[in-house]
Design a protein around this nucleic acid. Structure first.
Lengths: 220, 220
DNA sequence: TAAAAGTTAAAACAACTGTTTTAAACGATA
DNA sequence: TATCGTTTAAAACAGTTGTTTTAACTTTTA
């Protein structure tokens, strides 16, 4: 293991140890996952002693949970803010909403931003059954899904309200795939621009939602 | 750590040790991930000695790769077979194709089958950057995507061929979401039947594809 | 200013980890 | 049946791990 030198201290400033540890946790856990980052590596990156994790957080597990708590609430609120901003404008179309929600997320993963990394880590953890997914999925993301469901119904009133949740989940799936596999996208489509991708996504989802809202066209 | 007793030996039969280890690997890695399953736990489950992993596979990492190799090729082939079977029937519609591809996959995760578990594990590993994703994504799944693209173009000829790959990827996203988060689906929609879910998925994706194939309806 | 509280750090701890070593046991062959 | 090749298994190895212990140091409080 290569020697980790402190990267979260600021010369000349007495940084808060807890925040330094949380910053280090975000960077390293997102990169390598929980199990492959040792407390020694974390504390070296944060420029403090291994005992600090237990002293301040009660252990590695709890640091991890706190890291998610710190990030995730912010992300959900950010999405809710985006939705409110779009819906407060006059004459808003479904495509406007979809684009407004998708664009920052896709940009985030392309720019390799921390928020994007944390979402990927969260998906991994949900799949790993490492964290209580009810906490994040139902209590926080459920809130976002409910809000999205209401505004989509507003914009496309013909959708069966009993099916709106499934529609929202399919919307989530449409975002999640490029979000998680962006490197793959870039490899197989080297010339794909972010705008092309967003155009596609908006178009596909809007058509899916609108087609869904129409009378059943399937009979053949 | 609870004591793991051998579960992959068959009384009265001299089982192949390699296959027993591979079976144990599938079960345990899918459940807990690579890092949380020790060689001792694996070999206990397989009813053999810890040295066997190195003797037969050259180490834990190589057992892992072999496990994927064993499973993944089968899965891709299975999907290709489904596609050929559907497309060999007369008068096949887009919805028939979509349903035929989706149904076994969704059923697999609901029934908690090994194939479903391995796909989840694969997604986790791609996100973890633990395995060379080119091997699986480009060489194997790329094959499936290319085939899907061709048959979708056959069924919906109006799609811009330059965009077909993105369409296939969105199709994949629509499957992957319920696939990965099926427990969440079941929690928030306890009465959802598999047929309801499939109907929704087919409908959403078919509408997305068909709407996509139409002239741009976005101008407002 | 002294005492109490908080923080830091090194050493220790007990457990775990994948791999290697070594020799016994087993199976195949002449 | 003896020899050779393969398989098995226990012990050993060297390293890693999160947590705890202990005491020194620093800051706060009265």
């Amino acid at each position: 293991m290569e020697q980790t030198k402190p990267i979260f201290t600021q010369e000349g400033h007495k940084e808060d140890v807890k925040n330094r540890l949380l910053d280090a946790a975000e960077a390293l856990f997102c990169e390598k996952g929980f199990d492959r980052v040792s407390v020694r590596e974390l504390t070296a990156a944060a420029g403090c002693n291994v005992a600090a994790v237990n002293y301040y957080f009660g252990g590695k597990d709890k640091l991890y949970a706190e890291m998610f708590r710190r990030q995730f609430g912010t992300m959900i609120q950010r999405n809710l803010d985006v939705i409110e901003r779009v819906m407060s404008q006059p004459g808003v179309a479904l495509e406007d909403l979809l684009r407004a929600v998708m664009k920052p997320l896709i940009r985030r993963v392309i720019e390799n931003e921390t928020g994007g990394k944390v979402i990927r880590l969260l998906v991994r953890e949900i799949l790993n059954r490492q964290i209580d997914r009810e906490l994040f999925a139902r209590d926080m993301k459920g809130q976002l899904f409910a809000r999205l469901g209401r505004v989509i119904l507003q914009l496309v009133p013909d959708i069966d309200p009993d099916r709106i949740l499934l529609v929202v989940l399919s919307f989530d799936g449409a975002i999640l795939h490029p979000f998680l596999f962006m490197e793959f996208y870039q490899e197989i489509m080297p010339d794909l621009t972010i705008d092309d991708l967003l155009d596609h996504m908006v178009r596909f989802v809007a058509a899916g939602i609108r087609g869904y809202a129409k009378p059943n066209q399937e009979g053949n």
